[in-house]
Nucleic acid binder design. Structure first.
Lengths: 201, 201
DNA sequence: AGCCGTTGGCTAACTGTGCTAGCTTTATGA
DNA sequence: TCATAAAGCTAGCACAGTTAGCCAACGGCT
């Protein structure tokens, strides 16, 4: 029995690719073993359990997404940066639905969890984007959460085929970006100084 | 062996409650059977399969959510209606995480699927909310998708414990509502007529 | 009341999947 | 060269979902 030359990274990467192809929910140890040319129990030499595998896939996905978004926003600012970041995230999710599903399905177990660390790193490019809008430091967390909610929501619904009708999804996405851009700029017809002015009811 | 007096509705409702308690992912036929006081195979007299059960739970959840949001927005308009709808949805998700998870995990199989129908009904109160803002009819779908994305995103991240740090989540939520409200009003510092003006790049 | 078909419960048993135990072979390096 | 660790294998357990098939309880007849 010749060796397959596997390693933890190889197995995780193969698992991520497989998840992208057949869906994260349908990913099984048996299929992954077949994919890498090995019997099922052999996988446990590289990965502790299916849960461990899933977590590693999630961490990998978050790292890759952060890298893609960081690269896309490099050298841009304001609305340009916002659009670039949003599009990069959306492209990633559409190209890697299995990887992204892994990041949704799994919760970090604690602040030391590699998933939590990778998730934090994913926030950095968004923080950079927000620096292009003049937002009070105290509101930074709120703005970050808002960005995350908005694009996470759109991406998951689209990836899940949740948008019915035939209206163009690209167009809806651009519309959403503009809505957020307008919302982030302070001036509003109400004359308030921005979203922060209506804090906690 | 005395009868337990079950019915499909009873089983589905019990499943939904159990999912809220222990998490949708951990819901098993065995536990549900135990909960309703019956042996596992007996459940199959009321439900075709676990997938069937899950779908029924999802449809139930969507119906309940639509009802809650509809009731909350009754008699309100504009920003008041927006806030009421957003809060009602968020409250529902926090109170019924298992039910909500069911609606995320499952895709409707087609436009005839009860889940798709219930999802459509959930859109109605949001449509009503949007009538309080003057949005071009052509942009209605975009606006609806935007609303869905925003609040779905926030709700899932919060329900999954995705917001790290200690910053107050309630406050972030109100901030998000205001961001959307501002974005939906046309006037913006750029002088454009609203998000629609930047259609498809 | 007493029959009888339908319904809803049960036990037994099959399948597929995650995982462990324990053996064997390959590669490595003192 | 040969001892040791790593990486593969087969066999097999446990558990969840599911099906088959049996039997008791209920409801509508006459």
């Amino acid at each position: 029995m010749p060796r397959a030359g596997l390693g933890t990274d190889t197995v995780v990467a193969a698992g991520a690719d497989l998840a992208d192809e057949i869906g994260f929910a349908g990913l099984s140890m048996g299929q992954l073993a077949q994919r890498v040319g090995v019997r099922t129990p052999s996988l446990y030499k590289h990965v502790a359990s299916q849960d461990d595998l899933n977590r590693r896939i999630a961490a990998l996905a978050l790292t890759e997404a952060a890298q893609a978004i960081g690269a896309a926003t490099q050298g841009r600012a304001g609305r340009d940066a916002l659009r670039a970041a949003a599009r990069a995230l959306r492209d990633f999710v559409l190209a890697h639905p299995g990887r992204y599903a892994a990041t949704i399905a799994l919760e970090p177990t604690g602040p030391e969890d590699p998933i939590a660390l990778a998730a934090t790193r994913l926030l950095e490019p968004f923080t950079a984007v927000l620096r292009g809008y003049d937002i009070a430091p105290a509101d930074m967390t709120h703005a970050l959460r808002a960005l995350r909610s908005v694009f996470h929501g759109f991406a998951t619904i689209e990836a899940g085929g949740g948008f019915q009708w035939s209206t163009d999804t690209d167009e809806s996405f651009e519309w959403l970006i503009d809505l957020v851009d307008h919302g982030l700029r302070h001036g509003s017809p109400t004359g308030s100084a921005g979203p922060a002015s209506r804090r906690s009811s």
